[in-house]
Design a binder for these strands. Structure first.
Lengths: 95, 95
DNA sequence: CCTTTACTTTCCATGGTGGAAACTAAAGAT
DNA sequence: ATCTTTAGTTTCCACCATGGAAAGTAAAGG
């Protein structure tokens, strides 16, 4: 069980959603995440970069049906940080 | 039951904590909230003002043991917004 | 080789955030 | 009555976050 630890990198609305989307799955395509968040390419790209630089997600470029696509997944560190942040939120709001 | 509605005014860490502290009680003193958040007077005062201007909290100056103190409480609007935001968070993080 | 697709980066403008210090109003002390 | 203390409030300032638009890039596909 992760220790409750508020993480302001993850707390930002868009990044919280990115982590929440990635948490239950092994990976997701850039375009899928973008559609869920309803943000521009540039905005998502910048959040991805921020999370990647914190080693919270890993980015893989791999062909998906002929063309190269960007795949995103939470790292173990990212998952721990995400779960820790969710635990911190639960402590704040009381379960 | 409040409708899930993400509220960025409430989402900010310090303001989320303020709302969470006020939610279960009828009112709290400024100094008590300040001690919980561990912020400076000026910072708390500005967050209080922002929440008050949104009509999310009400501020009363009333004597408490001789000296005048500032008492804070969630308004009904504030409570609805807070619960709606918590519901939105739960939707994002999945229960 | 030219175009399209799928991002990435830069530019820019705006707004949030916090600390420190100056300011204010109301008690209480002398 | 005036001085001091207490309890905030407001201003000043500097910095970081955030987003959109537009320009840039790299790898297919035609």
């Amino acid at each position: 069980m992760s220790k409750a630890c508020f993480d302001s990198l993850i707390h930002a609305h868009n990044r919280l959603q990115i982590c929440a989307l990635l948490h239950p799955v092994s990976e997701l395509e850039f375009s899928v995440v973008k559609a869920q968040l309803e943000v521009s390419d540039s905005v998502l790209s910048k959040h991805i970069k921020a999370l990647e630089q914190a080693n919270y997600i890993s980015v893989a470029k791999r062909a998906s049906l002929s063309r190269p696509r960007t795949w995103l997944s939470l790292t173990e560190l990212g998952e721990a940080a995400y779960l820790g942040h969710v635990a911190a939120l639960r402590e704040i709001v009381g379960l």
